[in-house]
Design a protein around this nucleic acid. Sequence first.
DNA 1: GCTGAAACGAGACATGC
DNA 2: GCATGTCTCGTTTCAGC
Lengths: 150, 150
Amino acid sequence: MDHIDRVLLAQLQQDATQSYAALGQAAGLSAGAAHERVRKLRERGVIRRTTIEVDPAAVGSAVLAYVLVDSTSWMGDSADAFAALSEVLEAHIIAGSASVLVKVRTATTEQLQDVLRRIYAIDGVSGTQATVVLETFFERPLSPQAADQT
Amino acid sequence: MDHIDRVLLAQLQQDATQSYAALGQAAGLSAGAAHERVRKLRERGVIRRTTIEVDPAAVGSAVLAYVLVDSTSWMGDSADAFAALSEVLEAHIIAGSASVLVKVRTATTEQLQDVLRRIYAIDGVSGTQATVVLETFFERPLSPQAADQT
DNA sequence: GCTGAAACGAGACATGC
DNA sequence: GCATGTCTCGTTTCAGC
């Protein structure tokens, strides 16, 4: 994980369709060397996968909400229960009053209500506090150059 | 945005490196037709970009936190101020007591504290409530088949 | 571990349906 | 709007440094 790797990661985040020749040029490498570096980054799991960013509104998911989930028991083994809800995009165990924080996208507020109902049905869940997003300023990937000490 | 487009989007989200031949096969199309569909999805902005998913821990961002930002004035024009902080990955205006919700990744809790300090320095911000994530169950992209009415 | 070149496979495009 | 075929370009691999 040197500076060159960081440049490669930043470049690929911006545009993963660019050629290894262009990638190498940005990092000061030949196409072959760039390819080898990227292959190793994938192998080591630094690059988890190559994917596309989809416009949520275009696929009918205009409503974004964060939900604090209160519970009466330890929620450490409930990952699968949340993962089973396709509208739940993230689920985290948090430090604080509520025990789980989830990010949810739905087409309508009615559907959001339905998701909350299904979250409530999960074992140990005693309550939910939903916070609806009115406007998203931005959502962006982690920038590798933000952290420079690994 | 028919069923075929949804299959293409779901396939590309899982693996954007697969060939158009494989993509077409999954959707019941030829490689050329699949290519044309994807080109139009990009053109229309449904596909925003092709990117990579990076392991946050591997680039030295092990700490994840959500921060509720309280304010004394309208925060609708403060998008740039939050975007200037590279550790801030998302910023949303929310309905509720606090006015802005941001997602932050840093290497250490000390760095998180520094980000909070810089958020506090933004015009109109009167307070912050940070919630630190202890364990992430999962983070995944929006599944196009979750919404079927566009 | 990088460079440069050579073989292979995929992407882009035109034609016809 | 999709299928087929051709040409071009990028990816991938390997010898050499």
